[in-house]
Amino acid sequence: MKLTIITPDKPIFDGEVTSVTVPGSAGSFEVLENHAPIVSTLEDGKVIIRTGKSEEIISIIGGVVEVIHNNVTVLAEGIVER
């Protein structure tokens, strides 16, 4: 499954993942391969990216997520730099 995370300033992540958890407005939810198509608003929170055995966390400032045909696109308003 392909994940793309972008902000108005720059691309943040673009690659293959096994799953991603996003901070949906109605609560966090996980997206796995072959997930049903969905569009959801996002709250401030953590995007948890899993690729095989590794995990990466990116803190975002709101946004929107779209899932369609094993492509997950997160349009974040911004990220919290570490």
Score class of each variant (00 low, 15 high):
2 K>Q: 15
3 L>F: 07
4 T>E: 15
4 T>Y: 06
7 T>V: 01
8 P>I: 04
8 P>N: 04
9 D>T: 10
9 D>I: 03
10 K>F: 05
10 K>A: 07
10 K>I: 08
10 K>E: 12
11 P>Y: 03
12 I>M: 01
13 F>L: 02
13 F>Q: 01
13 F>A: 02
15 G>E: 03
15 G>R: 04
16 E>T: 13
16 E>L: 13
18 T>A: 03
19 S>Q: 07
20 V>N: 00
21 T>K: 13
22 V>R: 02
23 P>L: 05
23 P>V: 03
25 S>H: 07
29 F>V: 12
29 F>Y: 13
30 E>S: 14
31 V>D: 05
31 V>A: 10
31 V>R: 05
32 L>C: 10
32 L>K: 12
33 E>D: 14
34 N>V: 09
35 H>I: 10
36 A>S: 15
37 P>F: 06
38 I>W: 09
38 I>T: 15
38 I>K: 14
40 S>C: 11
41 T>Y: 08
41 T>Q: 12
42 L>W: 03
42 L>R: 00
43 E>R: 12
43 E>L: 12
45 G>K: 00
45 G>Y: 00
45 G>I: 02
46 K>Y: 04
46 K>M: 10
47 V>C: 00
47 V>S: 00
49 I>R: 04
49 I>K: 05
53 K>Y: 09
54 S>N: 15
54 S>E: 15
54 S>W: 07
55 E>R: 14
56 E>S: 14
57 I>W: 04
57 I>P: 05
58 I>C: 02
59 S>H: 09
60 I>R: 00
61 I>H: 08
64 V>P: 05
64 V>K: 11
65 V>G: 06
65 V>Q: 06
66 E>S: 15
67 V>R: 11
67 V>T: 13
68 I>Q: 15
70 N>T: 09
70 N>Q: 12
70 N>P: 04
71 N>H: 15
72 V>D: 06
72 V>F: 09
72 V>C: 11
74 V>E: 01
75 L>H: 09
77 E>V: 07
79 I>H: 00
79 I>Y: 02
80 V>R: 00
81 E>D: 14
81 E>F: 07
82 R>N: 13
